[in-house]
C-alpha cells in the first residue's frame, strides 16, 4: 500500500524552477532516501510534502487522501512528522519539555510522560533531559530533533539531513534507530552521508536540477552511470 505519493509536483520561485514534475510513490514501511547535489530541490520537495511550501502545481496524497490544500499543521496531525534541516529546537526550554510539546499533540494525556521519556532514551538523551535545549551540544540538539519526531509515533517520518554534525558513534546509533523503525514507520530521509543511505535505505530517489534523475535500490543507484555523472562525480 502506498502511504505517500506526489503527482507532477512543481515549484518555481520568481522564474527559478526549484522542483519540476516530481512523481513519487512510497509504500508503507519503506525507508526512502532522497539524495542529490546541493540545490537539487530536496528541501523544497519535502517542504511541499509537509505543507511548509505551497506547490506551484501538482498534487500530494497521504494515506489515501489528497492533502494538497491542507495546511502544514493538519498534515502533521494526520501522522506526518518533520525534523528540520537547520536545528530548530526550543532553545530556552528543557530538552524534556521539547519532546513533551511534540508528544502532546498526538498522544493521550496519560501516555505523554512515558512516551517522552522513552523517546529521549532511544536517542540517548535521557540523562540530559533537564538541560535547556540551547545548552546541549550541536549533535545532541540534532538527536533531540529526532526524538521530537519519534515521539509523535508518525506514520511518515521526514528527516532532513539528520546526521549532519553527528559524531561517528552517534551516526551508528542513528542507523540502529532507523533499522528498528523500518517496517513499522515509513521514513523519508534526505541525506548527504552515502554510507548511511546505502546501509539503511530500501529505495533511493535521486533528484537533480529539480527533477527525478533515477530511482532504485541502493545497489542500482550505485551502479547507475547517470547518477555517477551527475552526482557522485565519478562517471
Amino acid at each position: 500500500m502506498t502511504i505517500l505519493s506526489t503527482q507532477e509536483l512543481s515549484r518555481h520561485f520568481d522564474g527559478l524552477q526549484a522542483v519540476r514534475n516530481v512523481s513519487l510513490g512510497i509504500p508503507a514501511g519503506q525507508v526512502r532516501a532522497l539524495i542529490g547535489p546541493n540545490g537539487a530541490g530536496k528541501t523544497t520537495l519535502v517542504g511541499m510534502i509537509s505543507g511548509r511550501i505551497p506547490p506551484s502545481s501538482g498534487r500530494v496524497h497521504f494515506d489515501g487522501a489528497d492533502i494538497t490544500a491542507l495546511p502544514a499543521h493538519v498534515r502533521i496531525r494526520r501522522g506526518m512528522a518533520y525534523t528540520f534541516q537547520i536545528t530548530s529546537v526550543f532553545e530556552r526550554l528543557p530538552a524534556q519539555e521539547n519532546v513533551t510539546l511534540a508528544a502532546r499533540r498526538h498522544l493521550k494525556a496519560p501516555e505523554v510522560d512515558s512516551a517522552t521519556l522513552e523517546a529521549l532514551e532511544r536517542v540517548g538523551l535521557l540523562e540530559l533531559r533537564d538541560q535547556e535545549a540551547g545548552d546541549l551540544a550541536y549533535g545532541h540538539q540534532r538527536l533531540l530533533e529526532i526524538a521530537m519526531g519519534l515521539v509523535q509515533r508518525p506514520r511518515l517520518l521526514i528527516l532532513d539531513e539528520p546526521t549532519q554534525g553527528l559524531t561517528d558513534s552517534e551516526i551508528a546509533g542513528f542507523k540502529k534507530l532507523v533499522r528498528e523503525l523500518a517496517g513499522k514507520t515509513t521514513i523519508l530521509l534526505i541525506e548527504h552521508n552515502m554510507n548511511v543511505v546505502m546501509e539503511v535505505a530500501d529505495q533511493v530517489t535521486v533528484l537533480n536540477f529539480g527533477e527525478v534523475l533515477a530511482e532504485g535500490t541502493p545497489d542500482d543507484i550505485r551502479a547507475d552511470r547517470a547518477v555517477q555523472a551527475a552526482y557522485l562525480g565519478t562517471g
Partner: peptide
Amino acid sequence: HPFGKTLIAIRENEERVRMLGYNI
C-alpha cells in the same frame, strides 16, 4: 497548563510549533 506551555513554545519558535501539528 499544556495550552499555556504551547503559547510559550509559540513565543520561542513559532514555525517549530506549527510543524509539531499545532494550529498557531
